[in-house]
Structure formats: structure tokens, C-alpha cells
Design a protein around this nucleic acid. Structure first.
Length: 189
DNA sequence: AGGATGATGGACT
DNA sequence: GTCCATCATCCTA
């Protein structure tokens, strides 16, 4: 029975994040469709989490994370890349889940055209946004609205989930809130 | 295979 | 001015 993703995201992010693995991220931009299977996510828990953008409360940049679960939070990273999160938890908590990586299911030609520089298409939050065509303009849109150009849809969950420390942060390293989908055939490091 | 580094913008001290 | 929820490229092996 398919999980209700919107309901799932209403819960705490460290619980919702691993269950997001296998779900699909669909972008329909410039009449081009890309469909991705989510394989790599990280949970961030707002004011309880010094590594979260929302740790110090709501600002103009992170406002989308304080909206209803399923709201897309896009921020510019290192001045160059965009990274995508979904808001999670009750409205006002600032909880969220960073989408770090996925597998292209549909639209690989479009993805290769958007990501000219590397063979690594979608294994990183900046790369994933470039592949899907996600820009800062999509910040604040709702992932479960059928009219949104970026949507989240149910997909088969992975058999195996790895839990590791989060990437690229210096605070709260002890929280193993990165979740990676693995298959029995593949060993990941 | 793996380490160093430059690009570049926004938030914070 | 300093610190980043990054990535591609340029080194050394």
C-alpha cells in the first residue's frame, strides 16, 4: 500500500527522511520531463539542530522550511549551486530534509544536456538541482500540487537503507541523519 | 584514487 | 571579514 508522503512529512524529519528513499522527484520545465528516484537524503531538525539553516530561527532565506510539510526550500550554496529540501514537521518548526541524490528514471537526455561538465549526473545536491532544472525561482512551491513544475510522487522503497553521518557539516556530526538507498548487489562506502 | 583549490553569494560575528 | 548542507578541475601518485 503506497505511503501518503504528505502525511509522512508531517512527522519528524529523522523518521520521514529514510522513508523518502525510493520516492520520485518529477520536474516538468520547458516542456521537458525528468523523473528521478530519490536515493540519498539528510534530515535537519530546525532549532534542535545546530547544522540546520533554521537553527537560529526564521529568516528571509529559510522561510520556506517553516511552511507546511512538502514545501520546497531551495537555497544557493557557495554562491554557485542550488540545493533542494522539503519542509517537514508541523508548520513553524523549520524542520526539513535535504535531497542529496537520485537515479534518473526518465529524461536522461535532458539531464545530460543540462549537466554538460560531468558524467556524475545526480549524486550530490547541487548536481541534482541542475539535472532537474531547479532554481531559486522554485523556492516555496508545493511538491504535492499537481500544477507544480516540481513534484514528489510515491515510488517503491529500497530494500536496504544505510544510515551515516551527514556530509559537509561541522556541527552535530554525531547524528547519523544521512540515509542512502542501497541494493543487495551494491556495496556503498 | 585522493588531496588541494578556486569560484562566488548570502548570512552571520 | 569569515564561514559555509558544493562542485569541477588541477595536481600528485
Amino acid at each position: 500500500m503506497p505511503a501518503d508522503l504528505a502525511e509522512l512529512l508531517a512527522g519528524p524529519p529523522e523518521v520521514a527522511a529514510p522513508r523518502l528513499l525510493g520516492a520520485h522527484l518529477v520536474s516538468e520545465i520547458d516542456t521537458k520531463t525528468v523523473r528521478l528516484r530519490i536515493t540519498d537524503v539528510e534530515a535537519y531538525k530546525g532549532s534542535d539542530d545546530p547544522a540546520s539553516h533554521a537553527f537560529r530561527g526564521r529568516t528571509e532565506r529559510n522561510a520556506a522550511m517553516f511552511e507546511r510539510p512538502g514545501t520546497l526550500y531551495v537555497y544557493r550554496s557557495y554562491g554557485i549551486h542550488n540545493c533542494a529540501n522539503t519542509a517537514a514537521g508541523p508548520v513553524g518548526t523549520g524542520w526539513g530534509i535535504l535531497i542529496r541524490g537520485g537515479e534518473v528514471i526518465e529524461g536522461e537526455g535532458v539531464v545530460r544536456a543540462r549537466r554538460r561538465r560531468s558524467d556524475e549526473l545526480t549524486n550530490g545536491p547541487g548536481k541534482l538541482c541542475e539535472a532537474l532544472g531547479i532554481s531559486i525561482d522554485h523556492n516555496g512551491s508545493y511538491l504535492f500540487d499537481s500544477t507544480s513544475s516540481i513534484r514528489m510522487e510515491w515510488g517503491e522503497p529500497p530494500e536496504i537503507i544505510l544510515s551515516t553521518p551527514r556530509v559537509g557539516i561541522s556541527k552535530a556530526r554525531e547524528r547519523p541523519w544521512r540515509f542512502i538507498a542501497a541494493s543487495a548487489a551494491t556495496s556503498m562506502g
